[in-house]
Write a protein that binds this DNA or RNA. Structure first.
Length: 569
RNA sequence: CGGGACGUGGCUCAGCUUGGUAGAGCGCUCGGUUCGGGACCGAGAGGUCGCUGGUUCAAAUCCAGUCGUCCCGACCA
C-alpha cells in the first residue's frame, strides 16, 4: 500500500519574498519553494523536495547506463595526492583543487573528477584485451573550489556529478564507447525534460581531443554557442566556422589619414566601408614571451580559449609594451612592424588581398595592404570567436547564436591518463598497450537547476512529470468534513495507483495553498472545494498550461493516474 | 584574484548623512472574526545591530582592521 505525504509534515519551508542572495530564476525559485538552503558560499543542502527530484534524475541516469552496459561503482571522494602527482595534475590543476592533509601529514585532494582514481582502480585488474571494453561510473559529490561560485546549484563548489570512465583496447573501441555514452546522454536530457543540444566543445582541464557538451538552452546559461538548422552546433570557444569578410578599399598599400576614433566602428564609418572590410589588430605577449600581433576580420573578436591554445597563458599588451614594439593603440597594423613581433592572422583571411589596417601612427591607417607583398603573416590560425551569421562548417548556412547551460560533457581521452599512470593491458599480439579511455560527466544537481531555468513562470516552478518531486498535489480547501474526506480519499486512490501524491492538509486559506502549489510547481493540482464536492466533482489543474477540468470524483483517480503515468517516459 | 555593493529579530528591509530609549512589514504564539488566489482585529514572544579594536560622557550610526555574503570579470559539470 503506497502512501501519500501530508504537506503539514513536509519539510519544505516556502518563502513569500525573493531571497536577497538569489538573482537567477532557478536559484530564486528553488530557495523559495523550500527545496534548497545555502550552507555556505557554493554549498547547498538539498531539502526533501529537491532530493526527490535528484533521485529521479539519478534513476534515469542509472537506467540509461545499464542499457549501455556501464556498471555502477563508488570510489572515495578523498584521493591520495600520489595519484594526482602521477597524472601530473597535482601541479597542473591549480587552486580549484581542494587539497588537505591528514594527521600523518599525508596529502590528499577532494576529487573534482576521478580519472586518476578509476585508472588506479582498474590498472592491476584489467590485464588482457579479452576483458575489454569496460565502462564504470558513479554518482557522487564532487568538490571544485571555484573562484566564484554562483547562481545556486548552477555553479556550486560541491555538486552532484555522475562520472563515467571507459577503457578500451583500441581507438576504434574508444570511439564506440564514446558514441554509446553520447547517445545515452542525449536520451537522459530528453527524459529529464530538457531542451538540450550536443555541441562541439573544448576539452579544457580534462584533456583529450574530441569533446561534446550537452547544452540546455537558456538565456541564463553561462556558455555561448552557435548552431545551425542542419543540427551542427558548437561552443563559441571551440567553433571552427566560416567567416565572411570583404576586401578593403584600394590595392596599393596607401597611407590614409583617418581622423576618427581608434575603433573599428569609427574607422568603418569614416571610410564608408563595412566592419568586415577592416582588419582588427590585437597585441599580446605569448607565454614564452614572444610579442604577437593578431589580425582578425574587423567584425570578430579574438577568442580567448583559442588564443590560449595558440599562445599558452598570454597577456594582453599594455601601452608600455606596445610602445616598445612600435605599436600604437587603436592604430596597430602589421605593415612595417617591428621584426621581433610575430604576426598571426585568422585563417578565414587567407585569401584576402586588400587589408585595411592601422599604420602604427595615431590618426593613420593603411589601405590595400597585401600579405606577402606589404607584410608577412608568420602563421594562419583559428582565432576568431564564432558569432551569429557566420557560416556553418557542415552546410554553409548562416549560424544562429544562443546561450546554454552545460549540463554534461563527453571526452575522448585516448591514453592521456593511462600512459601517465602506467596503466596497460596485454594486446592480442602480446604487446603491452595503454588503455584507450573516454570520460563522461553529468552535472546532476546542475541538471535540476537547468530544468527549473527552462521551465518556470512568474508563479513558480513548472516541473515536468519525469523529475517532479511529486506528481500530483491534492488541494482541499477545507480540512474537515466532506471536502476533506473526499480529498483524502482521492489522495489515497492516486497513491494506490502508484502516483506520487502530496496533500495540502494545512489549515491555510485557499490563496496561500494555491500560491504554494504554483510555487512548488507539481504538474497536477486536484482542487477540492465545497461546491464541486457537493456536485461530485473535483477540479484538475495542469500546472504547465493552467488548464482546468472538472472531473467526477469516482473517475478522477483512474483518469489522472493514467495521464501521469503516460507522461513519465 | 581584480572591480562594485551589502551585513540590523526567522525573511524582506528602514534607521547611519547630522552619535543620545533599536524600528516596520511578513512570519511565529494565544484569542476572536474570516475562508476559491499570499485576510482582518486584539494580545504576545523574539535582536550581543557580523566580529575585533579605536574615537567619545555616550557608537547600529564615526574611524581602522577582520570575517562573511552577493553582483560584474578571468576558470568549469
Amino acid at each position: 500500500m503506497k502512501h501519500y505525504v501530508k504537506m503539514s509534515k513536509l519539510y519544505a519551508p516556502t518563502l513569500k519574498e525573493d531571497p536577497a542572495e538569489a538573482e537567477l530564476a532557478s536559484h530564486r525559485l528553488l530557495l523559495r519553494a523550500g527545496m534548497i538552503r545555502k550552507t555556505a558560499a557554493g554549498l547547498y543542502s538539498y531539502l526533501p523536495l529537491a532530493w526527490r527530484s535528484l533521485r529521479k534524475i539519478e534513476a534515469v541516469i542509472r537506467e540509461e547506463m545499464e542499457a549501455i552496459g556501464a556498471q555502477e561503482v563508488q570510489v572515495p571522494m578523498v584521493v591520495p595526492a600520489e595519484l594526482w602527482q602521477e597524472s601530473g595534475r597535482w601541479d597542473a590543476y591549480g587552486a580549484e583543487l581542494l587539497r588537505l592533509r591528514d594527521r600523518h601529514e599525508r596529502d590528499f585532494v577532494i576529487g573534482p573528477t576521478h580519472e586518476e582514481t578509476f585508472v588506479d582502480l582498474i590498472k592491476n585488474e584489467l590485464r588482457s584485451y579479452r576483458q575489454l571494453p569496460v565502462t564504470l561510473y558513479q554518482i557522487q559529490d564532487k568538490f571544485r573550489d571555484e573562484m566564484r561560485p554562483r547562481f545556486g546549484l548552477m555553479r556550486g563548489r560541491e555538486f552532484i556529478m555522475k562520472d563515467a570512465y571507459s577503457f578500451d583496447a583500441t581507438v576504434e573501441g574508444m570511439h564506440e564507447s564514446y558514441e554509446q555514452e553520447k547517445a545515452a546522454y542525449a536520451r537522459i536530457c530528453e527524459r529529464c525534460g530538457l531542451r538540450a543540444l550536443p555541441v562541439v566543445a573544448d576539452s579544457g582541464q580534462i584533456g583529450g581531443d574530441t569533446s561534446v557538451e550537452f547544452m540546455a538552452l537558456a538565456d541564463a546559461g553561462e556558455a555561448e554557442l552557435v548552431w545551425c538548422d542542419c543540427d551542427w552546433a558548437a561552443d563559441v570557444e571551440a567553433a571552427q566556422v566560416g567567416i565572411a569578410w570583404e576586401e578593403g578599399p584600394g590595392t596599393d598599400c596607401e597611407r590614409v589619414e583617418t581622423p576618427c576614433e581608434g575603433t573599428i566602428a569609427a574607422l568603418a564609418a569614416f571610410m564608408g566601408v563595412s566592419e568586415r572590410a577592416c582588419r582588427k589588430s590585437f597585441s599580446l605577449i605569448a607565454e614564452d614571451g614572444t610579442p604577437v600581433l593578431c589580425l582578425l576580420p574587423g567584425d570578430h573578436e579574438l577568442n580567448e580559449v583559442k588564443a590560449e591554445h595558440a599562445f599558452g597563458h598570454y597577456e594582453v599588451m599594455d601601452e608600455e609594451q606596445m610602445k616598445e614594439y612600435g605599436l600604437v593603440k587603436g592604430y596597430m597594423g602589421p605593415v612595417g612592424c617591428d621584426e621581433r613581433v610575430r604576426v598571426v592572422a585568422d585563417v578565414s583571411l587567407r585569401d584576402s588581398t586588400s587589408w585595411l589596417v592601422g599604420a602604427n601612427e595615431a590618426g593613420w591607417h593603411i589601405m590595400g595592404a597585401r600579405p606577402g607583398r606589404d607584410f608577412t603573416v608568420d602563421e594562419w590560425l583559428d582565432l576568431a570567436s564564432a558569432k551569429e551569421g557566420d557560416a556553418c562548417p557542415v552546410c554553409g548556412r548562416p549560424l544562429k547564436a544562443a546561450r546554454g547551460i552545460e549540463v554534461s560533457q563527453v571526452f575522448q581521452l585516448g591514453t592521456k591518463y593511462s600512459e601517465a599512470m602506467g596503466a596497460t593491458f596485454m594486446d592480442e599480439d602480446g604487446v603491452e598497450r595503454p588503455f584507450q579511455m573516454g570520460c563522461y560527466g553529468i552535472g546532476v544537481s546542475r541538471t535540476l537547476a537547468a530544468v527549473v531555468e527552462q521551465s518556470h513562470d512568474e508563479q513558480g516552478i513548472i516541473w515536468p512529470v519525469c523529475v517532479a518531486p511529486f506528481e500530483v498535489e491534492v488541494v482541499p480547501l477545507d480540512v474537515k468534513g466532506e471536502v476533506w474526506e473526499a480529498a483524502s480519499r482521492l489522495a489515497g486512490e492516486l497513491a494506490e495507483r502508484g502516483v506520487e501524491v502530496v496533500i495540502d492538509d494545512r489549515t491555510e486559506r485557499p490563496g496561500v495553498k494555491f500560491n504554494d502549489a504554483d510555487l512548488m510547481g507539481f504538474p497536477y493540482q486536484v482542487i477540492c472545494g465545497k461546491r464541486g464536492i457537493k456536485g461530485g466533482v473535483a477540479e484538475v489543474k495542469e500546472r504547465a498550461s493552467g488548464e482546468r477540468a472538472e472531473v467526477a470524483l469516482e473517475q478522477l483517480a483512474d483518469y489522472l493516474s493514467e495521464r501521469v503515468i503516460a507522461e513519465r517516459r
